[in-house]
Amino acid sequence: MDISTYLATANYANEALSQLSDKETKHKKEFGYDKYHGRFSKAAVSRLSGLSRAIVDKSMIEMEAQGYTFSKKQSGSVEQYDLTIEEVIDIYAHRNEPKLRETFSEAVVLFFANLKGGVSKSVTTSNVAHALRTHPMLLKQDLRILVIDLDPQASATVMLNHLYSIGSVECSSAQAMLQNVSREELLEDYIIESKVNNVFVMPASIEDGFIASDWEQLCEDHLPNQNSNMVLKQNVIDKIKSDFDFILIDSGPHLDAFLKNSLVASDILATPLPPMQLDLHSTLRYTGRLPHILADLIESGVTNIPQHHFAFMTKLSKSNQDTEALSIAKSVFRHEIIDTHIPNSLAFQRCAETFDTVISVNPKEYDGDIKSLNNAKSAIEEFALSVFQHIQYLRAV
Rank of each mutant, 00 (worst) to 15 (best):
F348D: 03
N197K: 10
Q66S: 11
G76W: 13
K72Q: 14
I55V: 15
N374L: 11
K35R: 14
D189G: 04
V196R: 00
R53A: 11
K28C: 02
I237G: 04
Q175A: 04
R289K: 10
I55F: 00
S18G: 05
G50K: 04
S360C: 00
A154Q: 02
T103V: 06
L263S: 03
L146P: 12
E24V: 14
S126Q: 01
A154V: 06
E353M: 11
Y164M: 03
V108A: 13
H390G: 03
V199C: 04
E382A: 15
S300E: 12
M137D: 11
L248H: 00
T25P: 01
R183T: 09
I298D: 13
E15M: 13
A65C: 14
D142C: 03
V169W: 06
S213D: 15
D250H: 02
K72E: 02
H130R: 00
N11Y: 12
R395G: 15
S105G: 08
K241Q: 04
N374Y: 09
L51P: 06
L163D: 10
F312A: 04
V264M: 07
I293C: 10
L20S: 13
N198D: 09
R53F: 14
A295D: 13
H341C: 02
E193A: 10
E79C: 06
D214F: 04
A379V: 06
Q307N: 08
F312L: 03
N304R: 13
M137Y: 15
I380Q: 04
E216I: 14
N14K: 12
N375D: 15
